[in-house]
Design a binder for these strands. Structure first.
Lengths: 338, 338
DNA sequence: ACATTATTTTGGAACGATCCAATAATGCTT
DNA sequence: AAGCATTATTGGATCGTTCCAAAATAATGT
């Protein structure tokens, strides 16, 4: 009785106009908060809208005005809390700015990345924040540019040309971590975890630099590449412990790797921070309460996400401006593991 | 010279039609993969589209056809890896089904939740997957239903009426964990972490049931509510250790809490699994390589996300069908912490 | 070859908003 | 009270697609 059949036509701006006794243009203006309309009229319109249960159809609006308040965010590894924290910062800033985010997860799969980018393009989004999967061709920058969609690249650099980028000082950060290990008296230090790629090279460079600064010879055999996951790092650490008994400390590719190392050490009855020192990288939330709490280098993941959002928003509002970058300054945070 | 001024009007179905020498209707049909069009013609159209760099305007299409391939996902705490894993499973399944996801993060803020739901409504989405913030009124179910938007609730129940829901057997799971602790000979067992709410009550009930089954008296003083974060749990564990020296084991609200406990134990020089037993809940990825590896109850977070997606997709394709639920069966996974 | 049926193709009217130029109502001067 | 600037309001045209009923073309049977 009371409820009408469900496929009732949606109430539109037209209906509101009729109910309020004005034209649809007036309603449109009111909805946009225009000051052109007399307050009294505007109130009448809003009242009618409320009464009719009108809901704004942003899709229609955006089609006509050829604008968009949605931003695509593509993340490659949400299982890594670092990226989760970046995403949270990014999302918060974007919705505060009145945007809504399309989120896609690539799982380090290039094909999926291409697919989601294409899909997002069809959606006529206002911008893209991309953390490129390993092996993304540099040409992607040009491609997206040719689409006319503002883009900010996060975390992983993508070639040497100029583009908006939010990342951290990887070399400086790992240099800091390694130097700290050296200062604590360690001489046989491993570089642990991570897969070759731009970020890996930067961090490795920091490790090398710190060694060089201390006059310690770099030994290729002490760099242990492995999947930057807890599991990969755990297994790799175990192997390292067996084959390189002389190493007493590790500068890790990131916190995840460090956690894996912590686990492996515990398994061998070694006390991290006492029997073996481990330094992380990122300072994810979890680092403060691992067992033991992790010494690491802080790059403020959440702030990095916010910075990426800011860069993108700026690019959207000023498309012609020169590309800029946010490089997080790393800070040592010393806890118990080193 | 070669490049036209940037605000060049987008190439539309019209332009493609002209280039291919057919009508726009034909192009539309081809784009939808209709079998009505002769192969030869279709190929000609596709070729023209390619050549012109045509990009489908899904927004326009969806406006006309009043359909939608986007789904809103609202998550309350991405910092908790459990939710990140749920999200990944959910997202994967949804994009495989041809959807794209609007992601919003509420940070347990009711106002923000209302805001993002309203925004999503304006976007004319096909469905919503919601993990409600603590304190969400049950009425939200009715509200969303009145909007005509399919909804699946995740993780946290929302009242007693029938609705699509994906969660886990909280009571059974914690009962399992607690029973295991008892089997190991523990008699003074704490229930650690979490904030009062439906999930908390269910898990606490499991704890009580296991105690009762073993003929152990329940003692209210042994339940320690605290923010279900590493930090909250860490502090809470420390306090518990001081005030309740007799307890030798803890059934934790979730893995995050367990990790906090691990950290606190380490700080006190206690060896988890030897000096004090801790059981987690969820079995997030990190549990396999914590220090020590965490004994916990597995509810397969990723699968839970996928199940939520399946429920939602089903509801979308069969709006009238009876509400159904996915309740993950918990399985004990024993590692080193208990 | 012709009627009949099946296959392809098509033009205009939607979808629900915004834009813009034009009109109506109001306020201010003198 | 008329003239003029300001302020409010409005009707179409439009965004890029899909829908639908009808038209054109091809295939079939006799």
């Amino acid at each position: 009785m009371s409820k009408p059949a469900s496929p009732a036509r949606a109430v539109t701006i037209h209906d509101v106009a009729a109910a309020a006794g004005v034209s649809k243009s007036t309603v449109s203006l009111v909805l946009q908060g225009s000051t052109l309309i007399r307050d009294e009229t505007a109130e009448r319109v809003r009242e009618a809208a409320r009464k009719l249960g009108y809901v704004y159809n942003r899709r229609a609006a955006e089609l006509r005005s050829n604008s968009s308040r949605t931003i695509g965010v593509v993340i490659n590894d949400l299982m890594n809390p670092f990226f989760a924290e970046v995403l949270v910062g990014l999302e918060r800033k974007l919705v505060d700015a009145g945007y809504i985010v399309f989120m896609a997860h690539t799982s380090e799969d290039l094909r999926r990345q291409e697919q989601v980018l294409a899909t997002m393009r069809e959606q006529n989004i206002a911008g893209i924040a991309l953390c490129p999967v390993l092996g993304t061709p540099q040409a992607l920058l040009k491609t997206v540019k040719s689409w006319g969609i503002p883009l900010v690249v996060m975390v992983r650099p993508l070639g040497t040309s100029a583009y908006d980028y939010a990342g951290s000082d990887n070399e400086g950060g790992v240099a800091l971590a390694t130097a700290h290990l050296i200062a604590r008296g360690h001489r046989h230090i491993a570089f642990l975890g991570g897969r070759r790629g731009p970020v890996f090279e930067q961090r490795l460079a920091g490790y090398k630099r710190a060694l060089a600064d201390a006059g310690i010879a770099f030994d290729e055999a002490r760099v242990f590449a492995a999947d930057p996951t807890r599991e990969g790092a755990h297994d790799c650490t175990l192997a390292m412990l067996d084959s390189h008994a002389e190493v007493t400390a590790a500068a890790c590719y990131n916190d995840l790797v460090a956690f894996g190392a912590l686990s492996a050490l515990g398994e061998r009855g070694l006390r991290p921070g006492k029997d073996f020192a481990v330094m992380g990288f990122d300072n994810v939330l979890a680092a403060a309460h691992s067992n033991p709490p992790l010494s690491t280098v802080d790059v403020r993941p959440g702030a990095l996400g916010e910075a990426a959002a800011a860069l993108l928003l700026h690019r959207i509002s000023a498309p012609g401006s020169a590309p800029s970058r946010y490089i997080a300054t790393p800070h040592l945070v010393l806890r118990q593991s080193a």
